[in-house]
Design a binder for these strands. Structure first.
Length: 650
DNA sequence: CTAGGGTTAG
């Protein structure tokens, strides 16, 4: 390898014959030697020796170095491509975190003479796993069976993993039982079960491998140790550890780290510490595991004390390490220390990782600073289940049935709607009402209607609306009617005769039932209100109101702001009084007036933000150089530099 | 010349 690094060495290899150049490219791909690889590329071009096989090797080389763009350029330049060209490029996209591009390539193959083989399907299925596309994965499954490629162990395991990632353990188990299981797929299956907390099933698969002892490998040990950690079964864990020692796999750093973790999860901090001390090598995961072992057993200070030792050891923290020490800070309620670590994470580029942000929410919530928790939550670019759950449990622990909490639940429910999680939606609705004592509003109920409609359960949606006491507004009706149109269930829209009461029939006359069109009855519209937290005080505004003690200042400020954005393309506002002083504008003006110049302005609103305010706030964020975050009934709008995180679609 | 399972968080 050393010889290759010098240009002369590369030249010698590449020019001494096509076979040698191929070997060179392979070695360079392995070592991820991009610049030497480019040199070989150049030589091959000059020698006009860049044929199919060398081209494929080059694609592989660029892909191995993460340069998918260069790999694709070589791919495009090839006058002849075979299945290997496709496979190498697809794998490049897969490993570069661009699974959708890999799947595009698969579709491209339909038009090419090259037929997909087992390599292609293994890679394509891995792309489906990463992209989370069950539909495509199932199509691949069908084509694998049709092409008779299902017996390749690689393909079988990729299939199993695809179902684990995109569907669930049931489909994965079906794949496992259909093929003759090998270690790889058994390991995958055990981990799949453990992730779901299905320890009994995991144990059964472990037994399947146990029956053929010589098949155990170090990944099986990892899966087994993870199972023990999940079960908190120290006896089994110790046995597995003993087996690992006998097999000589304990030197593997993954296995060693897992042993530390297993002991920590079983509550044996001392044993975890001994296992940690015995590790021949320590990486971030080793340190994270031991810190987590301490923190998970209530020894927060001990966990925090390890941080400087880790730094001394020359190990750089990652998002996991930050999450662990932030949790320890929450446990000790040392929020200042947590903030210092958060600043540390900012510097090392981990502050934006969801793991870190979620840990911050938890830390603040546990440390009693619920509004800082909410600020973190509101400022997040992407919120996952953990973020929502952390925020909700934070509110719940603080006994907060505030407007903010109610709005957070609107967010949760609409997330369930978007993801099609009907049962979860109902679970959250009940949790909110029963455990937190928040009476659901029409906004919450509308999410449930949306949820049922999206699941195609139109009759349930209709009966939900009929039986639930709420002031149904246009949004809910529109949701149901649109769903009727989409699902072509016009009968329901007219009030299906078999099950509906007279009440439903009057409600469901096709046009006049649509409340917006029915001027006579009209729907009582909930007054729009917005609120903002300033120095632990909530200030509430409704449209055009002058109740606030600083109303004069606020209105002056708002007029100034509107004047400032007029040249930026906002002219309608001045003529329309009703929207000029909408509550969200008042709250934002108040925020700008009272908050320090760099602080982001966080405003909540009970209804959806209107178009005019949306445009105005975008421009204000630009003109006043302020970050404005508005949480409306539907979602967050984060306005920065004249742009909104919702992409002006809400 | 292209392909599979892996440790740390909640």
């Amino acid at each position: 390898m050393r010889a290759l690094r010098s240009p002369g060495g590369v030249a010698a290899w590449a020019s001494s014959g096509p076979g040698a150049a191929l070997a060179a490219l392979k070695a360079l791909a392995e070592a991820q030697e991009l610049s030497s690889g480019k040199a070989v590329h150049g030589r091959l071009l000059r020698a006009r020796a860049l044929g199919l096989v060398h081209g494929n090797a080059l694609i592989h080389l660029y892909a191995s170095c993460g340069r998918t763009y260069l790999a694709h350029r070589v791919f495009d330049a090839l006058s002849l491509r075979n299945v290997v060209s496709y496979g190498a490029l697809m794998a490049g996209y897969l490993h570069a975190g661009l699974p959708a591009a890999g799947l595009d390539l698969l579709r491209h193959m339909d038009l090419a003479p090259a037929r997909p083989n087992e390599f292609i399907y293994a890679t394509a299925l891995a792309c489906c796993s990463d992209a989370g596309t069950l539909r495509t994965g199932e199509q691949c499954h069908g084509r694998v069976l049709k092409a008779g490629l299902g017996t390749f162990p690689y393909v079988g395991n990729s299939l199993l993993c695809m179902y684990l990632a995109c569907s669930g353990v049931e489909d994965a188990a079906r794949v496992l039982s259909a093929a003759s299981p090998d270690v790889y797929s058994c390991n995958s299956m055990i981990n799949g079960y453990v992730d779901q907390g299905l320890f009994g099933d995991a144990m059964a698969v472990l037994g399947l491998i146990l029956a053929e002892v010589d098949q155990w490998d170090h990944v099986t040990f990892l899966a087994a140790l993870g199972l023990c950690a999940g079960l908190k079964d120290l006896r089994l864990g110790t046995q597995i550890h003993g087996q690992a020692l006998r097999r000589g796999v304990e030197g593997n750093i993954f296995v060693g780290n897992s042993v530390v973790d297993m002991h920590g999860k079983c509550g044996e901090v001392g044993a975890a510490w001994r296992a940690f001390c015995e590790l021949p090598d320590r990486n971030v995961v080793s340190w994270s595991s031991i810190m987590a072992a301490f923190a998970q057993n209530g020894l927060f200070e001990e966990a925090l004390r390890l941080w400087p030792e880790m730094e001394e050891d020359g190990v750089r923290p990652n998002d996991f390490s930050y999450a662990i020490v932030l949790a320890a800070c929450g446990g000790l309620s040392v929020l200042r220390h947590g903030e210092a670590l958060s600043a540390h994470a900012e510097k090392t580029g981990f502050r934006g990782h969801s793991l870190v942000e979620n840990a911050l929410i938890n830390m603040y919530a546990r440390g009693g600073s619920i509004w800082d928790a909410h600020k973190t939550f509101a400022g997040m670019r992407r919120r996952d289940t953990v973020s929502w759950n952390s925020m909700i449990s934070g509110f719940s622990q603080h006994g907060l049935a505030s407007p903010t909490t109610a709005v957070t639940f609107v967010g949760v429910l609409s997330a369930c709607d978007r993801l099609g999680l009907v049962d979860d939606g109902f679970r959250y609705l009940n949790q909110m009402a029963d455990q937190m004592g928040i009476s659901p509003t029409v906004e919450h109920y509308t999410c449930i209607v949306g949820l049922l409609c999206r699941a195609g359960r139109l009759e349930d949606a209709e009966s939900f609306m009929r039986t639930t006491e709420a002031e149904w507004d246009a949004v809910a009706w529109r949701t149901l009617l649109c769903a009727c149109l989409i699902h072509k269930n016009h009968g329901l829209g007219r009030g299906s005769p078999s099950r509906s009461s007279t009440a439903t029939q009057t409600m469901w006359e096709p046009t006049s039932c649509y409340p917006e069109a029915d001027a006579g009855k009209g729907i009582k519209k909930e007054p729009g209100s917005s609120w903002i937290q300033v120095r632990n005080q909530t200030h509430v505004f409704v449209s055009g109101d002058r109740e606030h003690p600083r109303a004069d200042e606020i209105y002056t400020k708002l007029r100034d702001l509107l004047a400032a954005i007029r040249p930026l393309g906002m002219c309608r506002t001045s003529t329309e009084f009703s929207t000029t002083f909408h509550s969200e504008k008042l709250a934002v003006a108040f925020g700008i007036l009272t908050m320090p110049p760099t602080a982001p302005i966080h405003v909540m609103k009970n209804l959806r933000i209107c178009d005019d305010c949306h445009t105005a706030l975008s421009l204000i964020s630009l003109a006043a150089a302020r970050t404005v975050v508005v949480r409306d009934a539907n979602r967050f709008h984060c306005f920065v530099d004249g742009r909104c995180s919702c992409g002006s679609y809400w």
